[in-house]
């Protein structure tokens, strides 16, 4: 039975860790919103803006990925 409680803690902890993805999601939304507005105003630089947008998304996403790594660590490594 204690194994079950341990597993429950793991699962809940991993779920809580993934709450960090909220910020990353909001961040990606802001990045894309700004980039799309910039592209709309300045279609000539759409290529450059898109490259920078993807980079920005990757940085924002990496925060979510850290959360995911922590969650996966909790689930599979079992601290």
């Amino acid at each position: 039975m204690e194994g079950n409680i341990y597993q429950m803690g793991q699962v809940i902890g991993a779920g809580l860790a993934m709450m960090g993805a909220i910020g990353a999601g909001a961040g990606i939304g802001i990045v894309v919103s700004g980039a799309v507005q910039a592209m709309g105003r300045n279609p000539d630089f759409a290529g450059t803006i898109q490259t920078n947008m993807i980079l920005g998304i990757a940085f924002a996403e990496s925060i979510a990925i850290y959360c995911l790594v922590v969650a996966l660590l909790i689930l599979f490594v079992g601290v």
Partner: peptide, 16 residues
């Protein structure tokens, strides 16, 4: 840390 975990996290999460 950010370099290694960014790449690792993306690909590992992808395979999972």
């Amino acid at each position: 840390l950010s370099f290694s975990f960014r790449l690792f996290g993306n690909v590992f999460a992808g395979s999972v």
